[in-house]
Amino acid sequence: MQRADNRKFDEMRKVKITNQYLMHAEGSVLIEMGNTKVICTASVEDKTAQHLKGTGRGWVTAEYGMLPRSTGTRKQRDASRGKIDGRTMEIQRLIGRSLRSVTDLDKLGERTIWIDCDVIQADGGTRTASITGAFIAMAEAMKWMKDKGMISSIPVKSFVSAVSVGIVGNEILLDLPYEEDSSAKVDMNVVMTDKGEYIEVQGTGEDSPFQSEELFKMLALAEKGCKELNLLQKEIIGDLE
């Protein structure tokens, strides 16, 4: 099939990451994956989560949101609705889990790194872009902590990135924009480390069940995309020793 943007089936959208995007946050990036744009910030708080007080361990947690006109029609703010919708809760928990899985919380000390991911323009893959960008913001915040003498080393065990894959028509495709995602028979989000380890795999047969052979092909394609993102992350962040 011919993709709308003429990409090959295994080709990522153009990825652009602007580091230190905001002046106040300890870590911040603007990540652009095709037409999807997300601002990711990391803020350091000098206290840990309530359930970890007195343990010497830190915490990493995330909040996620979409600006009202990040989508084709205006999306009502959670604040005006009086509650967080289920999708938002699911995504921010996924971001937090993904980052905690590669963080040595003992070395962080009794501190919290707050991750905020704000979608300013959505065209598919907002959760995967958020994870990929948030990792860079978190790493920059940790470098700031090390410079301030708050930690002796960067408490990161692996890099982490995420990408979408899916089956559209009869083709397995990498990095789906909204047009492909909305018509996909199978939609999957994969979160991986730079060591080839899986953190989370979210896959759904939206239109019909899928076979194990198709699953393995999607996972292989997702690994290819995540490796490309890891290389870009390492170019931006540099040495984390």
Rank of each mutant, 00 (worst) to 15 (best):
L67I: 04
L67T: 03
L67V: 07
L67E: 06
L67H: 06
P68D: 09
P68G: 07
R69L: 06
R69G: 00
R69E: 05
R69C: 03
R69K: 11
S70G: 10
S70Q: 07
S70R: 05
S70I: 06
S70A: 15
T71I: 11
T71N: 07
T71G: 03
T71W: 02
T71C: 01
G72I: 14
G72S: 09
G72Q: 13
G72A: 06
G72M: 11
G72L: 10
G72W: 08
T73M: 08
T73C: 04
T73P: 00
R74S: 00
R74L: 08
R74P: 02
R74K: 12
K75V: 03
K75T: 01
K75C: 01
K75R: 10
Q76M: 08
Q76W: 06
Q76K: 08
Q76N: 03
R77C: 10
R77V: 01
R77M: 14
R77L: 11
R77K: 14
R77Y: 06
D78L: 07
A79M: 13
A79S: 15
A79G: 09
A79T: 14
S80L: 09
S80W: 07
R81Y: 06
G82R: 13
G82Q: 13
G82H: 13
G82K: 15
K83S: 12
K83I: 15
K83D: 10
K83R: 15
K83V: 14
I84Q: 10
I84K: 13
D85T: 11
D85F: 12
D85H: 14
D85G: 12
D85V: 07
D85Q: 09
G86P: 08
G86H: 14
G86A: 15
G86S: 13
R87I: 09
R87C: 07
R87F: 08
R87G: 02
T88D: 05
T88A: 13
T88Q: 09
M89D: 15
E90N: 12
E90G: 04
E90H: 12
E90L: 04
E90V: 10
I91K: 06
I91C: 04
I91F: 04
Q92M: 03
R93F: 01
R93G: 04
L94S: 02
L94P: 00
L94T: 08
L94Y: 04
L94D: 05
L94I: 14
L94V: 10
I95S: 02
I95G: 00
G96K: 00
G96Q: 02
G96A: 14
G96H: 02
R97L: 02
R97D: 04
R97K: 07
S98F: 02
S98T: 04
S98Y: 05
L99Y: 00
L99G: 00
L99Q: 01
R100T: 00
R100H: 04
R100F: 00
S101C: 03
S101E: 08
